[in-house]
Structures are given as C-alpha cells and as structure tokens.
Design a protein around this nucleic acid. Structure first.
Length: 276
DNA sequence: CTCAGTGTTCAGTG
DNA sequence: TCACTGAACACTGA
C-alpha cells in the first residue's frame, strides 16, 4: 500500500469512520513485532476514547484522541487500513486470495469498533509495519526525525534547492531519504525523476537551479495528482511511467526503452532517452 | 526453490 | 560526527 498517496487515502478512511466517534472495543493480535506497544497498553490507551481527527506526516498516520497517548501507525511495505464495505456483505471467512475483501481482513493486527458500529482494521501481511503510542507524535521519533511532508510542506524553490545542494548522494537516494522529504517512496521517486527528466544517478548537488525547480514541481504534481485520484493507480494519467515500470525491457508511450538499475539500494526504473 | 518487493533501521566504511 | 551504503528484517507471490 504505502507511500504518501496511499497513506493519505488511509487517513481519509480513518477520518470518515472514526472522527468524532468513541472507541467501544479494541482487538489486538499477539504480534510483538508489529505491535510496538503491548496489547494491554493499546487497550488502555484506546478503549473509551473519543477520536478527534486523523493526522498524517509522510507515511505515518495517527489518530488524535481526547486523551494522550495517541495511536500512531506505519504501514511498512504491505500494511493498510481497512473499513468494512459500506452496505457490503460481511464475509466471515478471511483466508485465501483477496484477504482485503474479507472482514476482518486476514493479517489484521489491530481492530477498533466505534460507538456508531463503524469499524477500522489495520492489517499487515509482511509485518514490516508498526503500531505505536505517542504522547506528541509530531515531536517524538520516528515522526520527529522526518523532513518536510512532501505534500503539505513542500519548501519554496530557493529552500528546496539549498536542501538539494547539501547532499552528495544520487538524487534518487535523496528523494527516498525520509529525513529529506517525508512520504516519497520508490515509485513516487521514480515518477518524479521521470517527469522532471533527471537522471536518477546524478549527485543531488549537481542539479542546476532550473533542474531543482523542475524536480520540486514534479514532486508536487505527482503527489497532488495521486492524492486527488484517491491513490487508485488505475486513475493515474496514462502518460505516467508508473504503469510500465515493471514491464521489463519495454518502452514508454514515447517508444523509449525503460532501464532498471539499483540506486539508493532500490530498484529504479528510468528512461535514459528522457532523463539526463 | 529462489528472488524481488509501494520500507526502515542499523552496522560498517571513509 | 557525518554522509552514505548495503544487509537485515518478514512474508508473499511470481
């Protein structure tokens, strides 16, 4: 699920289901890896609380409650937040293929019931996600260590360029660094570099001011567009590299070949004919 | 059976 | 101390 657009979509789900509601039941899986806070402390912190709003910074999502600490979640590689389909059939069985369609979803780690009967479930098959409690999420680690939120706090062009100029690593690696821009992940970084027409291997500090502006604009455009689409990738523009990034040895809409290299520790899809 | 993946962290290096 | 790199983590699906 989880880069900034997907987490923002999850935040909207959380707000729709829980904002203004009281938590009447809490269920926790016995998973000490994903549950950084113990089931007992989670229950103590959440049960009976009223949810004020849902917040997000980068890929972290939290619920503001009427008493601290608050619930903070990170989706890792495979986590997600789910609500029962409105008016849909409640499947009791949650095995096999489309585990997200079942209720509760398979791999559910935390489940909340609200006072109007609404429900939220955090599920994470690969267990790289985390569920935490924090008194002041924005100021404490891990969120306190992050850079600007790539959607809501994009710095002005001058400042953005200065931050870029301070980094010697490949620009792709810098985009992935959450202490630089919180919320940018592998596919967003590749999409941004493609649309800005920049070679992902370039040292960040080697970019010209014009390239810095192009990168910043592309970051804003990709994120605004993906969030407006509700993180539904089928609704992303057909011109985006996203739709072809895993078609090995294939070409973009312009007929240019896609190349795959490991940069910043991640497989990077890019188009040498376009990105310089 | 092996490998890579929409992510983060930590040990090791220079 | 800092910036950076690569491996580890855990599990699923190709």
């Amino acid at each position: 699920m989880p880069e900034l657009p997907e987490v923002e979509a999850a935040r909207l789900i959380a707000a729709r289901v829980a904002a203004g509601r009281r938590i009447t039941a809490v269920w926790c899986a016995g998973d000490p890896i994903v549950l950084e806070a113990s089931p007992a402390s989670l229950r103590r912190a959440l049960l009976g609380r009223r949810v004020r709003r849902a917040g997000r910074h980068g890929k972290h999502l939290w619920l503001e409650l009427d008493r601290r600490p608050w619930l903070v979640v990170h989706f890792g590689m495979s986590g997600g937040l789910y609500a029962p389909k409105r008016g849909g059939v409640r499947l009791r069985v949650s095995g096999s293929r489309d585990w997200r369609a079942a209720w509760p979803p398979r791999f559910t780690k935390l489940r909340l019931t609200l006072d109007d009967g609404g429900e939220l479930a955090f599920a994470d098959p690969r267990r790289l996600g985390r569920i935490r409690l924090r008194h002041d999420p924005r100021r404490e680690p891990p969120i306190g260590d992050l850079g600007f939120d790539a959607l809501r706090e994009l710095p002005p062009p001058r400042r953005f360029f200065e931050l870029l100029r301070a980094r010697a690593a490949p620009v792709k690696a810098v985009l992935l660094d959450q202490a630089f821009a919180a919320g940018v992940g592998n596919w967003v970084a590749d999409e941004v570099l493609y649309q800005a027409r920049i070679d992902p291997r370039r040292p960040a500090r080697s970019l010209s001011p014009a390239e810095g502006r192009a990168l910043r604009s592309a970051m804003r455009s990709v994120l605004v567009t993906a969030v407006a689409a509700g993180a539904d990738s089928d609704r992303y523009p057909r011109t985006w590299l996203f739709h072809r990034r895993w078609e090995r040895g294939t070409a973009t809409t312009g007929g240019e070949p896609i190349r795959h290299d490991t940069i910043g520790g991640r497989t990077t899809a890019w188009v040498p004919a376009v990105q310089r």
